[in-house]
Design a protein around this nucleic acid. Sequence first.
DNA 1: TGTACATCAGTGAACGCGCGTTCACTGATGTAC
DNA 2: TGTACATCAGTGAACGCGCGTTCACTGATGTAC
Lengths: 212, 212
Amino acid sequence: MGRDQNTRTGYHHGNLKEALLDAARRLIVEKGPDGFTLAEAARLAGVSPAAPYRHFKDRAEILGALAVAGFEDFSSALDEAWQNGRPDAVTAFTRVGRAYLEFARKDPGAYKAMFEPGISLKNTSGLRTARGRAFDVLRTSSAALLEGSSAKKLPPVDLMSIHIWSMTHGVATLFAEGSLARGRVPISAEDVLESGVLVYLRGLGIIPLDTE
Amino acid sequence: MGRDQNTRTGYHHGNLKEALLDAARRLIVEKGPDGFTLAEAARLAGVSPAAPYRHFKDRAEILGALAVAGFEDFSSALDEAWQNGRPDAVTAFTRVGRAYLEFARKDPGAYKAMFEPGISLKNTSGLRTARGRAFDVLRTSSAALLEGSSAKKLPPVDLMSIHIWSMTHGVATLFAEGSLARGRVPISAEDVLESGVLVYLRGLGIIPLDTE
DNA sequence: TGTACATCAGTGAACGCGCGTTCACTGATGTAC
DNA sequence: TGTACATCAGTGAACGCGCGTTCACTGATGTAC
């Protein structure tokens, strides 16, 4: 179980850094990245408003740390889902897509910190590295798929990765409380993504096309 | 030219409602939808902080009005780009995609008000209507494309519209100052979208596939 | 095992700030006659 | 065309609030001997 959140010794919190990041996650979900306040995060962690400054330089640094941590979890989740492309690239790729959506749904606070622009983000070099690792998983799997194609003209692997990323990100954000989620569409994000990606893969000659 | 923004009679502004919406657009671009403040919008419009209350019930109502106005402009822009599918559906569809990206780039404040969740949005029935009109343009053009397909199994038109919307929205948001725009990718949003959509349309048998 | 002390991780009060919103008000405009 | 008056669209001062951040402080922990 590890050390849990309420191991306070009375004075020392014991796990404040993590507790603050968790509080940030929760607050961002409720009120968006701008609605997140240091004061409220401290309150949630059961600590005075000055305590966070022992762990973070300022408000922006917490958001940056959350984004970095988010990208690390994200990369791991995608990489695990990929499982080196087993049993076959298409199956594994579908799994990656689902893992992407699952991450966005399970940790929407981190997802917003990672992708919502306009947050004055510190920690930029760490951020770039972490984001790069996530992108690499998409690139690896895209490359594996391209190898299985019979088409004459194929897009460069980077471009294909961006296509996939765009579609997945689009599904994740349109369905997450935004626009589409509010009633109207009686289909799950997973089904939309999976069917969309299948069409895309047919367009690359990776899956056979059913023509008359 | 119409009445311009600085037609103040000394006391009356003359065009305050529009001026406030414009100020909101600008502020949202700079600081995000949550960073937008009534006080600063009033300042930008050259008016006291109490003046906006003659035109809007409260802060949320301004954001709602901006989103509605945004969806109206958006629908018009897409509809104009579609031009009833002339000269052919694929060409017109490509034009719609570009118009979408252009809107997101030219009026990012409105785009965020329209799509960024978590803004407590009032005016919900008007919003739904306006959003519906935008979606209808996508549906109409998707339907026209599906008619030109030779594939056996095609997705329902609503699902195809959502695929397209997701990809386009994904490209728009990933490239707009977010994540991908910061260096790294030396390709335009337009090129990414166009190439992605072409692959997708091949997957539907709407454009011929180049196989060996 | 015990003591002295440095360091770490908290406290709590205070600051200045800008915000959303309300209020009684007033200047400009439009309309009836 | 002129006057009286209602209404519209502003003002500006004030309120209470919660925020980010700083400060001198103090209790708990870890280490040297």
